[in-house]
Every structure is written in C-alpha cells, then in structure tokens.
Design a protein around this nucleic acid. Structure first.
Lengths: 204, 204, 204, 204
DNA sequence: AATGAATGAGTGTTCATTCAT
DNA sequence: CATGAATGAACACTCATTCAT
C-alpha cells in the first residue's frame, strides 16, 4: 500500500468513527427509532448520502455499536475478572479493584452503556435477545466470582440468584451514575457498592 | 344514568381493556415502535378504525399503560412500604414480607413491567424522562427504608447509593424472574434477595 | 360470504383493475423505470398509499401485467392454433383465420403488447429472460404450424428458422399496426401478411 | 498539432472507446436504467470521476451509442441497398448478398443491436421515438426494394406492409441469431430467410 | 488525467390516522 | 359502534454528478 493510500485509509477510519460517535449521540438523545440519518450526518458535518459510503444501513451502525459493547461486556470484563481470580487479595479489596475497572469503562463508554441499558430492549426482538444473551453471559462470569466467595467462606446460597443480584446492581448503579453525570464521587460509590454486595454475600 | 347506559358503559370499558391487553402483548413482542395498530386490533379481534373509538392515538395507549405503571410503582409500593414501617418485625422478615408483596405485583403485571424495564427507555425522550422520574420516586421511598435500617443499627453508609442498589436489584432480579417464566421458586428467590440486601446493608 | 362482503369484493377487484389500467398507461407513456407511483395513483384518482392496499410493490403490478401477457401469448394463442389444426381449410384461409384471432387480441390488449415488445427487454435481466421464454414458447407453437404446412406440400426448409420468421413478423407488424393507431385497414393487413408468409413458406 | 498532442489525442479516443465498450457490455447485462456508472468504470478499470472527463453524462454515452446505430441502420444499410440496386442479379441472389452484408454488421455490432432491439424502447419517450424513427427510415429503404421487386414481376401488394414485414423479420431473426450466439450456420439462415421473403413477395 | 469521497434531489414504501358506509 | 379503504406526510436509501486532492 502506498503512503497516500495508507493515509486515506486512516482518514476513512476516522470518518467512520465520527459517524459512530454522532450516531451514539443522536441515538442517546432521540432513541434509535426516532433518530434520523439526517440528524446523524448533520452532527457529523456531512451529507446524508455520504453516510452510506461508510455503512450499509442505519441498522449497520447500531450493529457496530452493539458488537463493540459485546466485546466490552464479554471480553474486557472477563479479563478484569481473570485478574481478580489471579490475585490473592481479601475479597473486599479485590472486588473494589474489579469495580474500579468497571467504573473506568462505564465512564469511557457511557453512551454505549446507556444504549445497552435503556434502548436495546426496545429496538427489536433481535436486539432484545442479543441484550439478554450478553447479560446472561456476563452473569455467568459473575457466578464464578460468587462461587469463589463461597470458597472464601460465604454463607450457603443460590449462586445463580446472587450473581443476578450483582449484575443488576452493577449495571443499574453505574447507569444511574452515568445519567447523574458522575455526580457522586467515584471512590465513595465503589466503596458503598462493594460493601453492600460483598458483605451481603459473605456474612452469615 | 339508565340501566342500559350503564351496561353499555361497562361493555365499553371491557373493550377498552381488551385493547390495552392486546397492546401490551404486541408491545412486548415487537416493541412499541414496531408494533402496528393492525397487530393490536387483529389480536383484539376487531378493525383498525375501531381502535380510534377508544383511544386518541397509539401514544394514548402507551400513556394509559404507563400511568397504570406509575400508580403501581408509586402508590402500591408506597402502601406496601407503609405497612412495612408500621410493623415492628425484625428487618429480615419485614423486608421479606415487602418483597412478597412486590413479587405478587410483578407476577400480576408482568407485561407492564417488561415494558417499563426493557422498552420505555427506547421509546422517546419523554418516556425516558418519565421512566427515570418513576425510578427516582421509587428510590426515594426505598431510601426511607434504608434510613430506617440505619436506625435499626445498620452501619454508616450513603443511603442514596444503597437505595439505588436496592432499586436496581429488585427491578433487575424480578424482571429476570419474569423473563425466565418464574422458573425459580418464589420463596427461594425472595429469601436470597432479602438476605443479600439486608445483610449487605446491616452488617458491619 | 354476505351480500355486502361480496359487493365490496367486486369493488376491490374493480379498483385493482383500475390500478392495472392506469399502470399500463403510465408505463406505456414513460417506461417502467420512469413511471412514478404518484403518476399511477393520480391517473387512478387516488392516493399513493392506497396503491399499496392493492399491490405489494411497483414490481408486483408489472408482474401481474406480464403474467396476463404470458397467459395470452401461451394459452390463448395455443387455443387459436388448435382451432387451426382441427379445421381442414386450405392453408391461406386457415392462416387468415388464425391471424384474425391474433389481430383481435392485439387490438384488445394493445398496451400490454407494447410493453411486451418495447419495454420488457429493458427492464431487468429477469424480465428479459421471461420475455425470451415467452417468445421461444410461442415460436414452438408456430413451428408445429410450419411442420403442418410442410405436410401440406411446402418446400423443404429449416422449420425453426421459418417459425422464427413468422413470430418476428407477426409481432413486429402488429406492434407497428398498434403504434400507427390501426391506420391500415385490418383485412388488408391480414391479407398481405398471410400471403407473404404462406406463399413464402409454401412455394417452390 | 505537435506529435505529442496528436499522440495524446489518440490515447484519449481509445479511452473514450473503452468506456463505450464497457457501457455496451453493462447496458446489455443490466439494462440502461439499472446500469451504474460504477459498473461501467469498474469494467473499464478506472474511477467514477474519470468517466466525466470523457462524457457529459450517462445519457451522453447512450446518445453516442445510438448515433452510431443510426449511422449503421441508415447509412450503412443504405449503401448496401444502393449496391443491390446497381447490380442486375436475379432477385434471390441479390437479396442474399444484401443479407450477407446485414449479417456481417449484426455480428460486428451485436451489443448495439441488442440494445436497439431490446432496450431502447424501455428507456424513455425520447429514445422510443428515436427508435421508431430509425425503424421507419429503414423501412422506407426496404420499401424501395419491394417496389423494385414489383417491377421485377412481384404480385400486386401493399408495399408499405410488405416492407414492414421484411424489416420485422430481418431484425427479429438476426437478434434471435445473436442471442443464440450464432448457433445456426450463417449461410443456412440467410438462404432460408431470403427464400421466405423473396418468394413470399414475388410468387403469385 | 485520475481518484473516490461528498453532495442532495429524488423515489418507493410505510403506517398512523381519518372517514364514508 | 364497526369496518377497512383512503390519505399523505415522513423516511431510508440510491446514485448521477461534482470537486478537492
């Protein structure tokens, strides 16, 4: 590939990214179904037709966004969890570390998470299924964490239910945090969250 | 009002209700935006035009549904909570009773709750705001409960955060329960849920 | 079916027919690709949306028109040809009778034939193939006629070529006749056409 | 003009020609209306923008193609016909010679003729008119041939009708020959065609 | 001359809503 | 009240053409 072609390749990727960012912002504001291609391209400072030089369809963008989310929710969180498992910290501080990793991602990808949490269910059967699949997957990872806490001496309980409690809590609380524009101080949020979940799971 | 008029009044209300039930089912299946008036009326066994004898618009139905939900989430839960406050049970069993009341409602109004949780965010700015308002309202009630637990000897914590944890958990877990078609035995779910939340909140 | 339902059934069929007629006229005037749904519905005295109560798409109408043409070109002409075979007239007058039948159909379905001859090839691969299939089919029937003329004493020749000559001639001449708005007197046209084809095929 | 300028002139003409050839091929395959400039330039191994360095518009190419066709159908055929008139061969062999000239051209310009016959009618009012004008023009030439055959002793007939028969036949049969990829042996085709037309026109 | 991203007018189709019967 | 045909505004997507590089 020539220098020139490589340069244009980079510019194209940047443009594509700009469209994704504009889309996220418009989807966030109006919802996927009420977002107009014109809104997106206006925000991106270009024309309607040009959108279709980068994406096959309106669905195509949301699919790209969602596949990014899947990557995040499945792989990135999994990596954090592996790190959690490999370290021999006492539960509270280990979980705090894990949640700090979560918080970082929620902050970085706030629009994506808002879409996941608030809109994906209402888009279409297909996306609702996808969302539930991601949630289940995520909960499976959390379940391993719960099993580990049981090894650590947590009381007897149904790990599936407790895992679902953790998942709901983490998502619900962080989304609220995003929507409040990170009003509450991060460390305080994490501290409180960790204490409730870990103590709630461990104490007899 | 004559007997005849009263009778027709009742029939009218029943028809209206039939439309609401059909709408709920179609919204659940296809999502509000992809639900067609024709789908609803077909399910109700009547014609498109007739829908407009009972509702001003498609938005009108969802508004009726949502206002029912608001009533449920705000007033009904509030009544349950008052009952909780008035009784001097130890926290665990008091909260269990409260959650039994919740469970009953989630079972009875499962479609409404699915719409609230999965779709309302993706409908429109207006409904997202409404949803958040309901959530905040609900969380305010829960906060009073947390404050009460603190009176009962719970450790020092940010009651706003803990209340948000409770809200997220209750909604997330019960919605999962609905979607799983109530697979998990009710008493086990409530037991586990209560223990995690109450112990998580109380223990030092 | 009730009397009322049957009546509305009839009205619906008439409306559908009106759309087909309007479509034929607009396709004839502007060509399929440059015909606008709005042109068709305006001509039919109704609204754009209503078109879609009767047809799935723009392609759907042309498909209906073409399937009518296929019926005509294959079955109707076949029936005329069977009649030709069953009668023991001398060739000239038998063929004249056949052509009189053709002429009647060309007059009745002039718009359809114009579309077949002038536009179908330019629409799409699919329709070009369909057109050629119809033509081949028609030519196969004509070939039987030629074989029969050979039995009657026509000179030795390649019946496939001669059949193709007849087909081209009949279509080309009648389409010209349609386009000239039937300027030439029917009997003269048929007389001349028959003489050239029959004598051209028979004479040694 | 300098040597260099003349050279670049030639290159430019060649490029232009390449575009025409690519266009013909794409028009043949997809039809004028469904042919995309991108298809044409891809086939020509260049870029979309470059097309507009050689042609004003998409219509411009088809106009060039059609004007080539007009030249062919009017002037080239006319020259063949003059040659026919100037020679004192008996009709059959003179017409055969004429048709041999036709066949050569149909083989050389097959794509153009396919476009003329199959697509030009479906493009636009303007092109349909053009096509009919060319056909009429061609038929006028043929009519002179028929008049000459009448001088040679052909039976009394309407020369306009017979000319139209000849035109339809020649076009229809040769197009079929092209589409069949010249399956039938040329001399046999011409022999058969000539015999049917000449005998059909001459014999009493 | 060559490239291909950018432009935006134009089109088929959808669907909530209306209304004559 | 019930019906479903009629309405037309709205939108996703296309593609010939332009233009900066």
């Amino acid at each position: 590939m020539s220098v020139r072609a490589r340069k244009s390749e980079i510019i194209k990727k940047e443009k594509r990214n700009l469209f994704i960012i504009s889309s996220l912002s418009v989807f966030e504001e109006k919802g996927f179904n009420n977002a107009r291609i014109k809104d997106i391209t206006k925000k991106a400072g270009t024309s309607v037709g040009n959108f279709y030089n980068y994406f096959k369809s309106k669905e195509d963008v949301i699919e790209v966004i969602i596949s990014g989310l899947t990557e995040l929710m499945v792989n990135k969180f999994k990596r954090l969890f592996i790190y959690f498992q490999e370290n021999r910290f006492p539960p509270i501080s280990a979980v705090k570390n894990l949640f700090r990793g979560y918080a970082k991602m929620f902050k970085e990808k706030k629009e994506s998470f808002l879409i996941f949490f608030e809109q994906m269910g209402g888009m279409d059967q297909k996306y609702r299924d996808k969302r539930n699949e991601i949630l289940d997957n995520f909960t499976n990872e959390v379940e391993k964490l719960i099993l580990r806490l049981i090894e650590f001496g947590a009381r007897n309980q149904n790990p599936k239910i407790t895992a679902r409690i953790w998942t709901s809590t983490v998502l619900g609380v962080f989304i609220w945090w995003i929507r409040s524009d990170f009003e509450i101080e991060e460390e305080e949020l994490i501290e409180n969250l960790t204490e409730v979940l870990v103590k709630g799971t461990m104490s007899n």
